[in-house]
Design a protein around this nucleic acid. Structure first.
Lengths: 136, 136
DNA sequence: CGTGTAGTCAACTGATTGGTTGAATAGCCG
DNA sequence: CGGCTATTCAACCAATCAGTTGACTACACG
């Protein structure tokens, strides 16, 4: 099941995988580490209290999600952060945020219109919006 | 195990939970739906081919992650999107992105310095950076 | 050539997850 | 009161996940 039936979600990019990959704190930490520069598996494994194999698996998850790319340098496999996926997430998040804000804007308009047209409840004629945008 | 040993990750906010919550396409879809306005459980459940209980569970996950808040209106439980968590994610993502860009900037500086100081390989004296920022 | 180093693959385990059914709670309405 | 509606709780199941151990591949170097 890649995508659910009745939905307003755009097709489905690897967003699932990206969010899932970044849901694990160890993985998020590795990504943080990788913003400082490429690293080998053993280098990445060093801070954690787990086997190299486990780290390798985490890396595979990140790679499958497209967060990371592993090249080859002799027996070493330098891990490189793929910056583009961040754009994918930011796009989703920002789209949601914009929709929320649009909704509040719409609501403000309605309330403002009511203020000026509704005969009752208007001592002053300044169209002060009641509802503020959520603290952002 | 809330957080891993050797780490440069800031304490640990509910980021785990937020990313995990948004890793599920159904849940992401519900959030998208909620940007259009609050909704009851049954309303939210309508588009999906699954029991109300399953939807209720998804909602619980979103709530525990702080993505959503459920108030009470008689026997109905209107679900409301909590916009602030988006900031949390955006903050993490943008911090990572800035670090990557800082790194590239640093690299550019080094290369530029080599251009002006290295006696070989310098026909012109304009410190043109070789490496561009990753396509954003 | 053999040995050490870097990494992956495979099989197993316990915990979590996404879904189910069935029963329980809570509040409106006749 | 009794029933309908909206929602949750509890137990269960199959699949996935994060971790382990053990065996394997790939390469450098002496």
């Amino acid at each position: 099941m890649t995508n659910q039936p009745g939905t307003l979600t755009p097709p489905n990019d690897g967003l699932d995988a990206v969010f899932a990959a970044l849901a694990d704190p160890t993985r998020r930490d590795m990504v943080a580490r990788l913003t400082e520069g490429d690293a080998t598996v053993t280098e990445l494994a060093e801070p954690y209290d787990m086997t190299i194999q486990a780290v390798s698996k985490h890396l595979k998850v990140l790679e499958d999600a497209g967060v990371v790319h592993r090249s080859r340098d002799a027996q070493r496999r330098p891990v490189h952060l793929e910056a583009e996926v961040f754009d994918l997430m930011t796009a989703w998040i920002e789209r949601a945020r914009r929709r929320i804000e649009a909704r509040y804007r719409r609501l403000d308009d309605v309330l403002a219109a009511m203020d000026t047209s509704d005969p009752a409840d208007q001592g002053t004629d300044d169209p002060q919006p009641r509802r503020k945008r959520p603290a952002s």
